[in-house]
Design a protein around this nucleic acid. Structure first.
Lengths: 349, 349
DNA sequence: TATTAGCACTCTATTTTAGTGAGTGCTAAT
DNA sequence: ATTAGCACTCACTAAAATAGAGTGCTAATA
């Protein structure tokens, strides 16, 4: 069923107003808005229609209207006006991000912080999913105190390391590093399987003398360290901003949400839920399927590092969040991030 | 001024009770406690004395008593009874920490999580302060897309890296790595000064042909990466537990605290404040000098990695926290952490 | 026919009032 | 020195009164 122009305008006005005030919106407030020129009585009739259509909800008989999830959905898809981010903010973003460009993890984290600052909502970022990242080099360093450090470097500049509790000696370490690098470089984490490991084992056997138990130990560690490549971190920023919304003035609700956000597993579930193939994905209320966040919305977008390696950045906030602003901010940041990350890969900067 | 045995018992009872209930404690409640055998009237007299001495406070005329900061201080220093942690919890701790032993950062983080779980308060951990950590090796890796990765490894197994946006080629990278390692290994971050850098510059000049601007760039990056060694991370765990205490049922207060805890600079200030030379340090209320946390207490202890490299682990909670439990938990964890970290350095594990 | 003014009605939120009870300090008795 | 007894204080709660925002419906109007 289609909405005529007037109904659209009214719906938009109601949602805009509700996003601003968090209070049920009455007909009088809408009738006062410039450019409509309708009396409150007319608005009342229209609002009754919009309620019947499922876009608005009346909390109780003598209250104003509040948008339903469908209302928000319609608003996001077809109604809301674009938000323009100030030049100053863009300038700042530029400076802040450029500053960090030489430390990947910190860059990602910073992007989250900026998203939070720009929107004033809770932001999250995931580190890039690196299971497709190709190995560039493996280093083995002999440490003091009978420990050996294994370092895996990918072509994208990701570094992962683990400490092995045994000593190989400098020479053996170097030899091992050479063998591992030769056999594994150019491969991505998920191309390394049991056969590959067996192959490496054979090469090591024929070039070095190691106790079998030590060898198994080493291979295990190498495998684990490579597996680390596909482990994603999720950072949350500005979580406490949730507390400022009247919808969570009930501390127990706030606690539920913050507790949820503090747990990495929960976030993983949530962020998967937020996946869609469009550029920016919006999950409104119940759609995320996560009980504690049923009154929250989730806006997510992707950034990419190289060809296939992608991470996510997004905003979590109350359903009545300022979608336009959030969209604009995420768009800006993810584009910026893409550009910076690709500068890396392109010509010298 | 000294407290007689009876006053001490009463003060302890009042604080124990208040820690439990968060409500002002009345004379009747104390008189009912086993083993004292005093009427409420007597208790009232004693409590009036304790108030005069500054250990208790009466929120208003007809209310019970609440401990003052001095009261807590006395309680912590001389009154409270020891807390015994269950065998099961110790067992768990053991398992959880052993599991992580091969990834230093994650181990530290995990220790914080366990501290939070054990006490049910907010925990923090700092990564070890590494400015005294000696450099073991410096690696230079030529990446795809005209980028070069510089990796610094310390003898303790700390790895720091940065990406440099220019290409040196494989051969030059190897040469550079060799020179840097030779010149810098065995030195700690704060032993590397301008003269040292000049010295390295000369060596590179005479062994490699690089554009002067490129060379400066490289040296800069090496220096920055080494400086990273002394940058400490601070992790917070279970922050949202603050919300469950009645003292923060006012959301705006809770927000103030959580906002404070989310900011790294704030934490740094706070944790410095928590420094004392004793084994476990306790900062009660105002003592920390930080406005938003004036109703919180801070219990901090140190763990050490190697000889001089130390980090901190601690608990933040309401002033009426269960100090005995927190002490016992931190003690347990820091000892455990020390043991694990020293296993690393001692003989094979 | 679409819009609007007017009005009775509904329901929440705020303020007011009264009442309850935990706790105190003081005094006098033990 | 301790305690029973009592008058008094003050926060908290429940109930009652009030205010006010908003609705739906009807009848008048353009």
């Amino acid at each position: 069923m289609d909405l005529n122009e007037r109904k659209r305008k009214i719906l938009q006005a109601v949602i805009d107003e509700y996003i601003d005030s968090a209070e049920p919106v009455g007909s009088r407030a809408i009738s006062k808005i410039e450019g409509l020129g309708l009396s409150s009585a007319t608005i009342r009739n229209e609002m009754a229609d919009l309620e019947e259509m499922g876009y608005l909800i009346q909390p109780h008989t003598s209250a104003g209207r509040v948008p339903s999830d469908e209302g928000y959905r319609f608003y996001v898809n077809s109604l809301m006006s674009r938000y323009r981010i100030g030049m100053e903010a863009i300038e700042n973003l530029h400076i802040e991000l450029e500053n960090r460009v030489n430390q990947l993890d910190k860059l990602i984290k910073k992007a989250g912080t900026i998203a939070a600052a720009l929107t004033d909502y809770t932001a999250f970022v995931t580190t890039p999913e690196q299971s497709l990242s190709k190995i560039n080099k493996i280093d083995v360093v002999d440490l003091s105190g009978d420990r050996t450090l294994i370092i895996v470097v990918t072509q994208d500049g990701i570094v992962r390391n683990r400490i092995l509790r045994l000593s190989l000696g400098t020479e053996n370490s170097a030899k091992l590093a050479y063998i591992l690098t030769t056999k594994l470089s150019g491969l991505s984490g998920n191309e390394i399987d049991f056969d590959k490991i067996k192959e490496i084992e054979a090469v090591i056997r024929s070039n070095m003398t190691l106790l079998p138990s030590v060898l198994v130990n080493i291979l295990n560690f190498v495998y684990e360290t490579i597996s680390d490549l596909s482990s994603q971190e999720i950072y949350i920023d500005n979580a406490q901003s949730m507390l400022k919304f009247p919808e969570y003035k009930d501390v127990s609700k706030a606690r539920e949400i913050l507790g949820f956000l503090e747990n990495k597993q929960n976030l993983e579930k949530l962020i998967v839920a937020g996946s869609e193939d469009s550029d920016i994905s919006v999950v409104i209320g119940d759609e995320n399927g996560v009980e504690p966040l049923k009154n929250c919305s989730l806006v997510t977008t992707e950034y990419s590092l190289g060809d296939k390696i992608k991470g996510k950045i997004g905003i979590i906030g109350p359903k009545r969040m300022d979608y336009a602003k959030v969209f604009a901010s995420l768009d800006l940041i993810s584009n910026h991030l893409d550009r910076i990350l690709n500068l890396y890969r392109g010509s010298d900067g």
